[in-house]
Write a protein that binds this DNA or RNA. Structure first.
Lengths: 333, 333
DNA sequence: TATGTTTTTGCATACGTATGCATTGCAATC
DNA sequence: GATTGCAATGCATACGTATGCAAAAACATA
């Protein structure tokens, strides 16, 4: 138990000196599968513990040319769907020795900067949660052999990024069908962002399913995937003068919940009866009795598993995967 | 526009060769305040852009002995309070060039491992969100001059970690006082984790404020800071046989919201009338009309600002800071 | 015992950048 | 014109680890 009075953090050389071996041996003692005799390894580990030595991951990564770090660019913190997904990524990475370097991007414009900086950290992969990246940056990642996974987003552009999404088309169609089956006739849609692929795909499928059914074309408002935006959009829909909808499909659950509350408190409308409300995601809140929200699920666990498979190079040539969910009927519709 | 056909990412040497300068000059061109002539810098930047060069942060950090990365260990993802705080940290760090390396810890036991690994990433600080760290690891961080900030946690142990908390004592006292002022007589408390300092402090202050008022000692249940736990704890409190409370203070908002819903759906009790319910945190959901939760606020922005000040060494000898909030009275109590 | 085979070990070097030091160039001062 | 001061530049080295290579050691085989 010798006291260490140097304030320098110990290096492999210090351990080597104490254990009477070479620095190479210390390195090998900490590398699984390296060629080193068991007793020497034990001696080195003991010396390392005495000094409080831990390998410097930066130096290791510098040599290897890649770090066991995955860059995650996060868009919407407001939506628990993504917080939940982040949690699952973290859990899944744990077993693979991967770590998360977290960036947040308030606007799509900043995403390019964030990713550019990620590259200088020699990350081994990039995950984009609910944000878009320019083709230029995607190409730059590809050149460095860094897989890019878009989570809950796709793109029409032809580029080398992977994409994992829920089944926006099937989901929106199922909800439209459910509205029709339950005799709804004045239908409305609340979009997220206009430049979000999820919102656009959900809208397109919803509108397609409605067309040709004899029902008037659905009214359309934009909630910007935010609570406040959804509240205002709901007011717009139900404002005096216009004919009130009897069914509302919101592009995600958070907006649907905001709509439900606004209907109740500002218009005295109890969702499910006078007006059906449906969302998308099936976040845990959707099941809460206060909302009891009908929605189409996005199975986070499987979506995350696919994303990790892409990163790990376990995908069979596929670049885009659509994970099916299911229609979950509750009281709101 | 020369094409780059080598698949090696360009280094400062490549840029130097192209620009006809030394590698040192390239380094200086990318270092603010370094001694270099403007026109040479421009020439280097141009060459760097042509090659798509970005400085390797790993190599830089290796030399400097510290990286501009802050390790964050995250406990409860379920509670939006912490997700919100994480968002604010990210935003605040942005301006300081700091990045977040994210770890999640399901149990306190794993926190030590996580932090040990963080150290090998040469992080410049560690933030613990709702988790506890052993004194041994705190000491190890101190030895490496890495500040450790406990966010929303304190410890009785005397060690070198910083701590930022809301005013648990004032908050719980204010809520107790509010219960008394509104004539409540059969009071209950729902704890979070027994080993969480926040829960213990809130409980102690609440109990202290109640004692000597002539009101019977509050009943006590444990909700484990989880929704399911809170639902079960509420059932326990209101189960047939026992005398039902007319006021319930939950150690955080998420549990209070779960309690409100359980009272409504399972016991037909409308919170605020037959039974007052109060929480702690003032998460955004507390203001939603479905819950309209009376609570004591924890001002995230100021708490984060204090934590960042600790990290930046801008604290004046203080090691623990208590950020006052305010009692927010809504309909639930 | 002699020979071949496998395992273990150390040496030296490389990863990409930052920086102390010495040198150069240039302008300012006497 | 000689001298001083200052900015700009390059050289060489250091950060801490991993790894190819060759030497040594350990082991197996005949």
């Amino acid at each position: 138990m010798s006291e260490d009075h140097s304030f320098r953090t110990p290096t492999a050389h210090d351990v080597a000196r104490l254990a009477g071996v070479s620095q190479s041996a210390v390195s090998r003692a900490f590398t699984v599968g390296a060629s080193i005799s068991p007793d020497k390894r034990d001696k080195i580990i003991a010396a390392a513990n005495e000094l409080g030595y831990r390998p410097n991951i930066l130096a290791r990564s510098l040599i290897k040319g890649t770090s066991k770090v995955v860059g995650v660019v996060f868009g919407q913190f407001e939506n628990p769907f993504f917080a939940h997904a982040l949690d699952r990524f973290s859990e899944d990475f744990e077993g693979r020795g991967l770590r998360i370097l977290l960036f947040t991007a308030k606007t799509n414009a900043t995403v390019d900067e964030q990713v550019a900086e990620l590259l200088s950290y020699q990350v081994s992969a990039v995950i984009l949660m609910a944000v878009n990246l320019s083709s230029k940056l995607v190409a730059e990642c590809a050149r460095s052999n860094i897989p890019v996974v878009m989570f809950n987003r796709t793109t029409e552009e032809e580029h080398e990024a992977f994409a994992v999404t829920g089944d926006n088309t099937a989901g929106a169609t199922a909800i439209a069908q459910h509205f029709l089956n339950t005799g709804r006739a004045r239908v409305a849609f609340m979009a997220g962002y206009d430049d979000s692929s999820t919102s656009r795909q959900r809208e397109a499928a919803f509108m397609a399913a409605m067309s040709g059914t004899g029902i008037p074309e659905p009214r359309r408002v934009v909630g910007h995937y935010s609570r406040q935006g959804a509240i205002e959009a709901t007011r717009e829909l139900f404002a005096a003068g216009a004919e009130r909808p009897d069914a509302l499909f919101c592009a995600n659950d958070m907006m649907a919940i905001a709509a439900i509350e606004t209907l109740r408190t500002e218009f005295g409308i109890e969702p499910g009866r006078q007006c059906a409300v449906a969302g998308f995601d099936n976040i845990s809140m959707a099941a809460w009795p206060s909302f009891s929200l009908t929605t189409y699920s996005q199975p986070i666990d499987r979506m995350v598993a696919h994303a990790v498979a892409f990163i790990a190079g376990e995908s069979e040539g596929e670049r885009a995967v659509v994970v099916p969910g299911e229609l979950i009927i509750r009281n709101s519709a």
